[in-house]
Design a protein around this nucleic acid. Structure first.
Length: 832
DNA sequence: GACCTGCTGCGGGATG
């Protein structure tokens, strides 16, 4: 439902100046081999028509230039191609016209540099500048006074700009906003913050047009609406560009000896180093930072002569060192870079020749993103070689390829009006010129995520930042915003400063810096990793073997050590479950393997393992749920295999355990992975009598989950995020070291206060909602239960854990015991 | 027969 008016075109597309400008732009791009693509012209026309929208382009197809065409034409038409002959001054553009948002500041820098070339050639008077957190302070000071005609920046820096009191005037002349990598931003609180900022910009500059650039996702229509807001009807431009993807798999030499479980995949070292070529630039993606460290080390140990050509890149390495690696890749000095998602997005190192993925990419979009790093230009074929780390992953990779071929790609989750982001935004707006409540509520509701925001929720958030809400009114620091002559503003400078220091929605835990004695920093690790070590202990980090010299709490001093070490830091981080499209394809492939209908190298390779599974147990047909029971010295086991991803399985395991114990009381321990989950009872348990469809009902789902899982504890943890985004607990304070203890106790304290004295606090409710949505993937869990309701339960009793069940046993045992005893436990298990 | 995990991203302003 839109309630907009048609925006009048600011530049008539058929005007002579526009035609001339268009020709100049086309000529310039043609001269550099950037022939205008069909979709560019569509976008340019839509832009010049005054419309907003979204351009859907495969990764690496030149979408940046596609989006710049329209604004360039307009800038040229107005200010360069037809200058006032009498006065050079008339050609100068004063104030901001075009804003480009990139989620990565490194990319923002690259775009800024790249855009200077056409502007210098076509309209030297039009300045382009970047602005991010590391922009030189002299330039930032100048930008405080006047913004350049073209500004390239990050979402957080835009919010900062909106927090200055002259924001309305500074953005009044804005004509275009381009939002890059919109598929990455939307569905996260960063994206929501962008939506709020765009709503504000549209208020300051009513004719501004927004063009979002997105890779393919399932819900592009929603992405487009979120980008343009509710007052406009988005134009969706589909790039007419073919970007074929080829997915190879590196098979193990001896398929029979391939492990049933595991993630590291180091058994594949030989085939991998045989496949790698030190003269061919290659990105080797892994799923975890510790895995990247181990693979980089293993590759160099296997091929010492490659040492100078192999490098490591992940998010815990010192930023400067990462930039050196990116530069080395660009110059060709480095050819093999082992990395994590840190190189997923467009750091401009130029195209690499090959991409390898160790372990399942778990999702279609992620595979396409990484494959897109190769042959990074329009029309080229992307190639990716997947390396499975255990048997079933062979099937998973084949399933992902099938999902790619069918175009079955993931959507992005929509977040419904998160009040922590809104709370932060209210203070930003109060700083940036102030607001009236009614006016701001109307404005906020034009943001897609807040279109259904109730007046009472808005008032609640407003009361929180003005009065500290119900419970915090006694404390001055929560009374940030005050009405002055009818406008809500921030009168106190210290409040303003603290707010600006904390703008943004990215929450990260403090960590320990690893540095040489001379002071050079190598990156960061988690505190608990260093805390367990004593001086003299060795470990591998940043691709080197290091020895701990001393540890002071926030800083660990190290020196280079000789020899080897197997001690590698682990970092906490998200672990992605296999996505919905992958689940669907995987279930189909499992069913086909059951009747031996598998074709293709991977599926043939994994068939021996599945034959063992068939011999020991069974495989589920498409309308079946496989359930196994067995008995070991550990106890009485139940294994269930819905193939829905580990998050859903965690919720399901707790749910089924609760419901089973209502039928026949017992205590269970649980484990889960992407394929299924396990319940174990220490005493004999009648699983065969208890497990039936009644356990899988969606009736009372939320209530049962709340009872089965300690939701309050998860909610408390989630509230740490919510309270920091809402800036009830600022991460940074002037002159103060941010400490984990401080952040956690402050947040926990607030949580307890709210629970006791303000149980209806909306931020508490939001933390709870986020637990259900994100921790349990509630909607997917419910859908899984509905699917299972129609399925037949295929119940099998096995003598020992089957190939599908065994990894769940490992998972559970690993969580409880040290590594020495794990080996013993597994040996014992083998003997059963 | 089988094995030991878990991503990324941003960010003040004045002063010396």
């Amino acid at each position: 439902m839109t309630r907009g008016r048609a925006l009048p075109p600011r530049v008539a597309p058929d005007a002579p100046a526009v035609a001339t400008a268009r020709q100049s732009v086309v000529d310039w791009f043609d001269g550099r081999g950037w022939a205008p693509f069909a979709f560019q012209t569509d976008t340019w026309d839509a832009y010049l028509d005054g419309r907003s929208g979204l351009v859907n382009v495969p990764t690496g197809a030149g979408k940046t230039w596609a989006a710049w065409g329209g604004p360039l034409i307009e800038l040229l038409a107005e200010h360069a191609v037809t200058p006032e002959p009498s006065s050079r001054r008339a050609r100068r553009v004063d104030g901001l016209r075009v804003l480009y948002l990139s989620p990565l500041r490194a990319v923002a820098r690259d775009i800024e540099l790249a855009l200077r070339a056409p502007l210098d050639a076509l309209a030297p008077d039009i300045r382009v500048e970047g602005r991010t957190g590391d922009t030189a302070s002299s330039l930032r000071a100048r930008q405080r006074r006047v913004l350049p005609p073209v500004l390239v920046t990050t979402p957080e820096s835009l919010s900062l700009l909106l927090s200055y009191d002259d924001a309305p005037a500074r953005f009044a002349g804005l004509r275009a906003v381009i939002v890059d990598e919109w598929h990455e931003l939307m569905g996260s609180k960063r994206g929501i913050q962008v939506e709020l900022a765009l709503a504000r910009l549209r208020r300051f500059a009513p004719d501004v047009r927004t063009w979002a650039l997105s890779a393919t996702i399932a819900n592009l229509d929603v992405a487009a609406k979120a980008a343009v807001g509710v007052d406009a009807t988005p134009t969706l431009v589909q790039a007419d560009i073919d970007r074929p993807v080829e997915i190879d798999v590196l098979l193990p030499h001896d398929v029979g000896a391939f492990p049933w479980a595991g993630h590291l995949g180091i058994e594949m070292l030989d085939p991998v180093v045989e496949w790698l070529d030190p003269d061919v630039s290659t990105l080797v993606f892994t799923n975890a930072r510790s895995q990247a460290e181990q693979w980089a080390q293993a590759i160099v140990q296997a091929r010492p002569s490659w040492a100078s050509r192999v490098a490591l890149h992940h998010g815990s390495l010192e930023r400067a060192d990462r930039e050196v690696v990116e530069a080395g890749l660009k110059s060709g000095e480095l050819t093999i870079v082992v990395c994590t998602s840190s190189l997923d997005l467009g750091v401009d190192f130029g195209p690499v020749d090959r991409v390898m993925q160790i372990g399942s990419p778990r999702g279609v979009a992620r595979l396409l993103q990484r494959a897109g790093r190769s042959g990074h230009r329009p029309g080229a074929t992307s190639r990716i070689t997947c390396v499975p780390t255990h048997g079933v992953e062979l099937l998973e990779i084949a399933a992902i390829r099938e999902a790619v071929e069918r175009g079955d790609i993931e959507g992005r989750l929509e977040l419904a009006h998160p009040l922590d982001v809104l709370t932060q935004h209210l203070v930003t707006c109060a700083l940036g010129g102030g607001f009236t409540p009614d006016g701001l509520l109307d404005e906020v509701r034009t943001a897609w995520a807040y279109r259904n925001l109730t007046a009472s929720d808005f008032s609640w958030a407003l009361e929180l930042v003005t009065e500290g809400g119900k419970t915090l009114r006694a404390y001055d620091e929560y009374r940030k915003v005050e009405p002055v002559d009818g406008r809500f503003v921030v009168p106190r400078e210290p409040v303003a400063r603290l707010h600006r220091m904390n703008i943004g929605t990215i929450i990260s835990d403090p960590s320990v810096t690893i540095a040489f004695r001379g002071g050079r920093s190598l990156g960061t690790v988690e505190e608990r990793f260093v805390a367990r070590m004593k001086p003299g202990d060795r470990f591998v980090f940043a691709g080197r073997v290091l020895e701990l010299v001393r540890f002071s709490g926030v800083r660990a001093v190290v020196k280079a050590a000789k020899g080897r070490s197997n001690h590698v830091p682990r970092w906490g981080g998200g672990r992605l479950p296999i996505s919905d499209p992958v689940s669907r394809a995987l279930r189909r492939y499992v069913a086909e393997a059951r009747v031996g209908a598998a074709t293709g190298p991977e599926r043939e390779a994994v068939q021996p393992l599945l034959d063992v599974q068939l011999a020991m147990s069974d495989l589920p047909d498409r309308d079946e749920l496989l359930v196994e029971t067995t008995e070991t010295r550990d106890g009485w086991h139940l294994f269930v295999f819905p193939f829905e991803g580990w998050l859903v399985h965690e919720g399901l395991a707790a749910l089924i355990a609760l419901r089973a114990s209502r039928v026949a009381p017992s205590t269970f321990t649980m484990s889960s992975n992407d394929y299924g989950f396990e319940l174990v009872a220490a005493d004999p348990y009648p699983f065969a009598d208890v497990v039936n469809h009644a356990l899988f009902t969606t009736d009372d789902l939320d209530a049962d989950i709340a009872e089965a899982v300690h939701v309050a504890e998860l909610q408390r943890r989630q509230f740490r995020v919510v309270s920091r985004v809402a800036m009830l607990v600022p991460q940074n304070r002037p002159g103060k070291q941010k400490g984990m203890k401080y952040l956690q106790t402050s947040s926990d304290l607030l949580f307890d206060v709210f629970k006791d004295y303000d149980p209806d606090n909306l931020l508490l409710a939001q933390a709870e909602r986020e637990v259900y949505e994100q921790h349990f993937e509630r909607d997917r869990l419910a859908a899984a239960l509905e699917r299972i309701a129609d399925h037949e339960i295929r119940f099998v009793t096995t003598e020992r854990p089957s190939p599908l069940a065994f990894p769940l046993v490992i998972e559970r045992v690993r969580a409880r015991v040290s590594s020495e005893t794990l080996a013993q436990r597994l040996a014992r298990l083998r003997g059963v």
